[in-house]
Simulated scan of single mutants.
Amino acid sequence: MLDIQQVMHYLPQRYPFLFVDRVTEIEKGKRIVGYKNVTINEQFFQGHFPAKPIMPGVLMIEAMAQIAGVLGFYTYEKSPETGHLYVFAGADNVRFKRQVVPGDQLILEAVATGSRRHIYKFSCRALVNGELAASADIIIAEQTL
C-alpha cells in the first residue's frame, strides 16, 4: 500500500537507520502492517556478530517504533515535511522470542491502543515466517520542528 518513497515521506530516518521497506496494509487510526528485508549488507552485522550475524533486539524495537510512527503520521495527515516529528518515548512489555538473521523478512505490525495529549501508544509485533520474533508496547510522542 505504501512503497519506500511514500514511507520516506512519513519517516525522517534514512539509511542506515530506516527499518521499514514497505507498508502492505494500513487502516487509518487502527493498524498497520509492513516489512523490513534483512540482508547481510546491514551495517550492524559487521559487529553483531561477524561469525554469527543476528539483528540486535534494540533495532527490532526501533523497527516496530518506525512502523507505529508511519501509522501515526498517516492517521493524522502529518509528516516531517509539515513540521512534525514522532520520537520514541518508551517501550513496555518487551519480549524477544526468535533471532532475526540475514535473509529474513521481518514483518512489522502495530495496532493503535490509545492516545493522550500528543502521546500515542501501540501494541507491536515483529514476525518472521509467521513466527513471533519480538513484541512490545511502543510509546511515541509528537513534536513540532
Rank of each mutant, 00 (worst) to 15 (best):
D3Y: 03
I4F: 01
I4C: 02
V7L: 00
M8K: 12
M8L: 08
M8I: 04
H9E: 08
Y10R: 01
P12V: 02
P12W: 00
R14G: 08
Y15T: 07
Y15E: 08
P16K: 02
F17C: 01
L18D: 04
F19Q: 06
V20D: 01
V20Q: 05
V20T: 06
V23S: 01
T24Y: 01
E25S: 11
E27W: 00
G34V: 08
G34R: 07
V38S: 05
T39L: 07
T39V: 10
E42W: 12
Q43K: 13
F44P: 10
F45N: 12
G47W: 03
H48M: 09
H48P: 09
F49V: 10
P50W: 01
A51N: 15
K52F: 14
K52P: 00
P53G: 05
P53W: 03
P56F: 04
L59I: 07
L59K: 08
E62C: 09
A63D: 06
A63L: 07
Q66S: 10
I67V: 15
G72W: 00
F73R: 06
F73D: 14
T75Y: 05
T75C: 11
E77H: 11
K78A: 13
S79Q: 07
P80G: 08
G83S: 05
G83A: 06
Y86W: 11
V87F: 14
V87I: 14
A91D: 10
A91G: 14
D92G: 09
K97C: 14
R98T: 13
V100Q: 02
D104Q: 08
L106D: 09
L106Q: 08
L106N: 04
I107Q: 13
L108T: 12
L108M: 09
A112E: 14
T113L: 03
T113H: 00
T113C: 04
T113D: 00
S115A: 14
H118K: 13
I119D: 00
I119Q: 09
F122H: 04
F122Y: 15
F122L: 09
R125K: 15
A126C: 05
L127M: 15
L127K: 13
V128K: 04
N129R: 11
N129P: 03
E131A: 12
E131C: 05
E131K: 14
E131S: 14
L132C: 07
D137R: 04
I138K: 00
I138F: 00
Q143C: 09
T144D: 10
L145P: 03
